[in-house]
Design a protein around this nucleic acid. Sequence first.
DNA 1: GCCGTTTTCGGCCCGACTGTTTTCAGTCG
Length: 599
Amino acid sequence: MSADRGQRRTRAGKDVRAMIRGATMGHRLSNREVADILLQIADMLEIRGEVVYKALAYRRAAQSILDLGRDINEVWAEGGLRRIPGVGEALEKKLDELLRTGRLQYYEELQEEIPPGVVSLLAIPEVGPKTARLLWERLGATSVAEVEEAARAGRLRELPGLGARSEQRILEGIRTLYQRSKRIPLGVAWPIAMELLEQLRNLPGVEEASAAGSLRRMCPTIGDVDLLAAAKDGAAVTDAFTRFPQVAEVVVHGPTKATVILENGVQADLRVLPRERWGSLLQYFTGSKGHNVALRALAQSKGLSLSEYGYKRGNEEILCGEESQVYEMLGLPWIPPELREDRGEIQAAQEGRLPQLVELRHVRGDLHVHSDWSDGVTPVEELALAAGELGYEYLVVSDHTQSLAVASGLSAARFAEQRRLIDRLNARRQGAHILQGCELEIHADGSLDFPDDVLAGFDVVVASVHSGLRQTRDQVTARIMNALHNPHVDVIGHPTGRLLGQREASEVDIEAILQEAARTGTAIEVNGIPERLDLDDVHVKRAMELGVLIAIDSDAHSANALRAMYYGVAMARRGWANPRSVLNTRSLDQLQKWLRRRG
DNA sequence: GCCGTTTTCGGCCCGACTGTTTTCAGTCG
């Protein structure tokens, strides 16, 4: 569902030619840039009318590159391109050319044939490759603006296969394209979905209701909210759904499916089937697309056909009331939704080596929380009580250090004062045990905000970059390396500094940082703030491969925000993290032993 | 263009909804 869109089309608004020009000037292409070129090629092949499987192959390879967790330039240098899933002989040659020279002749030739402006038409909802080609060939349109103009002039309805309704839908599509709010963070979508689910469960005849799609897989961002329900009378449920008070507009409305736009601009999809098909419905619409394709190929090899309705062997139907039965039929254990990204989980399931995933209940404490001493809003005492209510054994109050003035960073003297308060509070034994930490500024020149003798006084030090995020890759990497080499630094906070939808990740050599963290034993943070989720899932997976310890933190600035731990855990799970790889699943005792060993 | 516990060639996942159609193509998920 929603997740499929993202990988289906080239990202809108990216001038890939500009990226290529940059490449010829010595710019090193990122995984994202390489993937965008492959996606662009896939679009052009489809518009050209090539067999769809060719475009599919390019998209699959693009997704693999995004999921790599490593810099593709390094993989290329090692001669490992062919080991990337979906990269065969032909794509290896093309990728080699692209990474070596910064250019790709095949791509440039395609662009001669199909102007990039035609590809940009695919961004319009309702316009696919066939329509894009039609608009281009018959109207000469090579931009969304030209299509809009033609539609307003009533010239689209004259085209074969299109009518007045299609013209109207395309105009509406252009409008939503212009105002389309970008993908929404998981932390925003989740509460919206929970509210809708509550309403669905209260409808008469609804036996089950669940989130699905990228939301159930806990993707960092969500395109639209996918919901499922089990009920005998599907039409009654979709009818009621389209009349929910939050609904601003009904886009699609049938007896088993409805799509609506909510008043907050978020799109929500609902699918309904009878209870006896719940398992297959849930499995199918949780996706991801890649996971399902692989699963169905497996089904086919066993003479079975799988859809949201269940299995078919010839004319015989096999229903799955529970999701685990869908996997059981294929001889697989149930696979947690967070793993269903076609990143090797099916093979792992076949070989009985699915990871035991970390769960929220494993978390014994939070290592990164701000109080009202710096830029938080909650007193230390209340934070400890709130942490206690969440079932935590300990809480690290880690306020900002002196040089981050915008966040009221504390001097060494102020921290000493705070230490006395913490000692007093701990003596009262109310709520979680409080440890004193700090979120230590890594300066733009790589130096740290406190000397070693001050750092030695903290129980836990989380070192983070907040300034100079736009420095070169080498500079940012060197700063974090320097922090890693300080024995007092226990955790590296939000390593890339990304803010979803607002700020790209810093240019930083994560591979080098992870390898060094594995060596020094420093933990790398998985920050749970919905806009951060940093490290991301792909790099958590790489961290697991390298044996790096992670710390899942809320980075809360209020008692309520401690709950962001939930999203951090989700990201860790998407990265295949097991409880033993997570520092804060340890008991207070074990944590303190670990801290003492580090000195 | 990829890929192999039915294959090195011939497959490649399956269905809902909509609109323009007289039986289906296109889009989306």
